[in-house]
Design a protein around this nucleic acid. Sequence first.
RNA 1: CGGAGAGUAGCGCAGCCCGGUAGCGUACCACGUUCGGGACGUGGGGGUCGCGGGUUCAAAUCCCGCCUCUCCGACCA
Length: 491
Amino acid sequence: MAKELTKRSDNYSQWYNDLVVKAELAENSAVRGCMVIRPYGYAIWEKMQQELDRMFKETGHSNAYFPLFIPKSFLSREAEHVEGFAKECAVVTHYRLKNDGTGKGVVVDETAKLDEELIIRPTSETIIWNTYKNWIQSYRDLPILVNQWANVVRWEMRTRLFLRTTEFLWQEGHTAHATRDEALEETMKMLDVYTNFSERFMALPVYKGVKTENEKFAGAVDTYTIESLMQDGKALQGGTSHFLGQNFAKAFDVQYLSRDGRLEYVWATSWGVSTRLVGSLIMAHSDDHGLVLPPKLAPIQVVIIPIHKNEKQLTEITEKAMKIKKLLEAKGLTVKYDGSDTQKPGWKFAEYELKGVPVRLAIGPRDLENSTVETSRRDTLKKQVVPADGIDRYVKDLLKDIQQNIYNRALDFRNRNTFRANSWDEFRGVIERKGGFVYAHWDGDPETEARIKDETKATIRCIPFNMDQEEGTCIFSGKPSKRRVLFAVAY
RNA sequence: CGGAGAGUAGCGCAGCCCGGUAGCGUACCACGUUCGGGACGUGGGGGUCGCGGGUUCAAAUCCCGCCUCUCCGACCA
């Protein structure tokens, strides 16, 4: 019993913290609020990056890189933008240290003060639009479809591994277009990319919609979002896509000469997902035994464990296992053979379950005799002994089934925890007792939204797409409402 | 950033109130027996007691300051 996990039912957030550390995904560092992402956790992020990057390229985007530092004055060019981010910016004021005089340490050299302070990017709109100004003269220069993989810093008061850290990794797409429609189309296209990624790769169903004025990105005209549900009934924003209108073009004076010779401001979008996705992946699927990873994002998809009594058996089993490993790899699978003699099979079983490896194969003397393999699937923990012949096909199908099964499980959970409330009492009751998503009428007033948040902690996650128009009355104010919006307590 | 708790071997903890040569479990190393769900025996190594200062003959223990983590608030992806 080397690694005891807190049970989800005992303390969900302790379970999450334990799991992140014990599965060796990440740990806290010496710097407050900043995490060390360990190789196994980073491997998951790399898998996410790989798929997303492919999807971005397929939709015509290219990667580029902009500076970590942003001149302080840039931030204040767009009024809402500075308002939203000013409170959480790290600022570089000096560029040199000197000996502190005692010989034991260093202090800031006050003579090396920057003329203009630099902020560490909380997001890159400003530095990018300052650059785009130089890239864009005519409609022939448009569109610009750029993405960057980067780290950003937001000085958060309270942090949690992956979910909210002071520094985090993300991608930010920044596009420039000649027309409003084209920019809007881009905004929606990227929201669809995120939706596909979440549902097909993370096995995590989402609700899509537009953010309210209170919740939208600082500087955007509209923010679109995908929202998913964690096992504790709290919602999590998995990705956002912003229609920026001409806000940044105007702030940085980016105009282009149109086909008919007129100067027009450029239309913009930006969109991003972060390492927070790793946190949502953990919270959505995992159980009291450890991680449950969707096969498509698992760094190791299949682990093979030998069971032997002596050297001779191990040699025979290893030979057999390596053949199977090669077969599986030929099918494009990532396979690890753990023939190390330092741990017992039972220990290995528990360890790879903790790490969420989707499929485990065990091969022992009995299997050699009968030409079989014992298979175990992580999502249900069900074991089955199958013929070694055709194991590659079997495992391939099994992985597919696991991917589908954990999606179905998450979808079922999400659906069972999505409610409709028609009165304030009903709304409060659901939010406080059950959690989950609640569809309810809202009068459209930001003040009402704030009051609801004060009293229940629930926020409007989004105004969902494809909701039928439905006359009703606001659950809080009783004023008329034309449609329901989606509420939840969120991460 | 406010309130509460915590920091002692890789990990989990005791010792602190009442100052006197740092301990337990686990992990680690060696050997042997084991190996189909976190093995057992014997022997062994490992510590600036979060950091800095103070009190004292003597500080893990008492006092002051700081740092980090967890939980609750305010803020946020």
